[in-house]
Amino acid sequence: MHDIPLTWFLIFASACFVIGLLGVLVRRNAIAVLMAIEIMLNAANINIIAFWRYSVPGPEESPVSGPMLAIFVITIAAAEVAVGIGLILLCYRRRASADVDQYDSLSG
């Protein structure tokens, strides 16, 4: 019954981060890209909490600096999704498709 080494969490977080990046590069639908961005943000969150749990904070540091950053990242991700879906709906209302490539009126 021994602990899980830190590197395991980091590798899992990096794998999810890379999959999220792959999703962003490959998907054409705006909402699918938004989902991939959520995956990347969650991967960064796991990284932060893993580092927090495996380190003893110095006297100067706050004992919960990791979870605090994670909570603020969750609020930012949520605000981003709300605004993102709003923008997508606005674009959709004007141009009847959520496909990112089709928005070529701004090409070049």
Binding site: L21, L22, L25, V26, R27, R28, S97, A98, Q102
Partner: peptide, 16 residues
Amino acid sequence: TTTVSKAGFISGGLAA
């Protein structure tokens, strides 16, 4: 629009 183009997938996959 939600499908993934083959060529794009390979290059994206390699970069990732």
